[in-house]
Simulated scan of single mutants.
Amino acid sequence: MVSAFIPPVLGHSISETIIPDVKTTLNLFGMHLRKVRGEWEYPVHAHPQYEFNYVLEGEQQLVVNNRSYTQKAGDLVLLRPGDTHSSKSGNGKPFTYFCIHFDIDDKILISLLSRLNHVLFESGSTLAHKLSPVFTRLVEISNTISGDITMSQRMRLQSAVFELFGQLWEAFSIEANLPATGTYEKVELAHQIRSRLQGLVFQQFQAELPYDSHYGIDDIAAELGISASHCYRVFRQVFGVSPREFLSEQMLHEAKVLLDDSSLSVSQISSLLGYRDIAHFSRQFKRWYGKAPREYREADK
């Protein structure tokens, strides 16, 4: 195999700094700068990418996952994949906003995003204040585009977005008071654990595991060649919750999706999720959500 980089002969260097290889794929979707009238509304929708929404002038009213937020000039909103949301003017007057949808394969950045429960970051927050100059730059570049985008404009936009992610990392770490997540190897291990936990939910959902199976997190740790305590520690450092908490969140999500389907009885849902009887499922769901499955359905009507 031919090496892409051939180091100088040993002993010929006076000093040297080796930078680790950087391989990152960034995809940008639906980036737009828009000024709208006071009667403008955008209906409820969701998409599989992350979204940043930044208000430049006026006021926007957002409803995200059935919760309302008032976004004013300088405020930043972060939406995660699958978040349902709608928007309109917050005061019946025109407003201007900048929006960008993205996905990126950097696992450390995605891990950090997944740890934060915030949606709205007000202009006075550390994050919004730090990112404001980068959004100003993105808006300036966007204002130079009319018709087809040039190669120069495309590269400048990508450069600004990567600068946004750099500032985002620093600002999020401060905002969330997070310790360093560690090396890529640690993050990769945490993602392997998460993938297997999601597989565990899928197997349970597909009834591929018997109800009395004791296969779980300890077995995942053993398969990965690590101790259970190390499994817990790494997962919590990267994702901010324990593996068991994550597993419970995934099971609750599946349960709520099924309960939203009125054609399924609670008894059928209990069986689909691998529970031996409806009573056990009801107790578990109430422990997760604070309400029994039937109460959840009634409240959702």
Rank of each mutant, 00 (worst) to 15 (best):
F5Y: 10
I6W: 11
P8E: 01
P8M: 02
H12L: 10
H12V: 12
H12M: 14
S13L: 15
I18W: 12
I19C: 08
K23V: 13
L28D: 07
G30R: 13
E41R: 14
P43S: 00
P43M: 03
H45N: 07
H47D: 03
Q61V: 10
Y69W: 04
A73T: 00
G74D: 06
D75P: 08
L79S: 07
T84Q: 10
G90T: 03
P94L: 04
Y97S: 10
D103H: 07
S114P: 07
V119M: 04
S123K: 00
L127S: 05
A128G: 07
P133K: 01
P133Y: 02
V134W: 08
V139E: 04
V139F: 04
I145E: 03
D148K: 15
R154N: 13
L157A: 04
L157K: 06
L157Q: 06
S159F: 06
F165C: 06
T181K: 12
Y184H: 12
K186D: 15
Q192W: 04
I193Y: 04
L197V: 14
L197R: 08
L197I: 15
G199R: 06
V201C: 12
V201K: 07
Q203D: 13
Q206A: 01
D212R: 14
H214Q: 15
Y215G: 00
A222D: 09
L224H: 00
A228Y: 09
C231T: 07
Y232G: 09
R236K: 15
V241M: 09
E245C: 03
F246A: 12
L247F: 10
S248H: 13
A255G: 02
L259N: 05
L264H: 11
Q268I: 09
S271Y: 15
S271F: 13
F285G: 02
K286V: 00
P293F: 05
A299D: 11
D300A: 14
